[in-house]
Amino acid sequence: MHNFATWLYATAPSLFLRSHSDWMIPTIQSVHIIGIATAVGSAFMIAMRVIGWLGVDQTLLQTLRRYGPWLTGALWVLLATGALLVLAEPTREFDTLSFWLKMALVALMATIAVVFQRSVFRHDQRWETAILGTAGVKWAALATFVVWAAIIFLGRFIAYDTVWSHVLPGAKA
């Protein structure tokens, strides 16, 4: 993986991003942060509806029609801007434990977002009548807040993480 990172670092697109990095990197990071606010904001509105603390004048299906596309769209924006940031400085990410933990949690949350939305669109009546009020689903919704917070923490720590270099000696000279 370190060799791949070194190879990627030397490619033309990576070099291009770095040679314009004085404004490109802060700009991409800013778009990434706005993407985070959009994704987490949308996920918050959906989870709060599931818990029953916000938007209870709307059905779960209505809530998903309102915020689901924003969540999905923001996740794509995050994937694109995140890929550019990795491309600009691959060793910083690939040699970092925070990065891989973050990717694992992102994959988990993206999967949940897709499966949950599909399930509600197919079985909205069952969600409305049998599932929504249960304690289990409310706790699950609360748990998503913790995971989103962990993702943001890990993302910020990529820039400061030195753990992986101890795990893999020589990974970071």
Partner: peptide
């Protein structure tokens, strides 16, 4: 910084 981003997500999202 992470707390700042988490809270701004809540603020800007709403």
């Amino acid at each position: 910084e992470a707390v700042h981003v988490i809270a701004l997500s809540l603020m800007l999202g709403t």
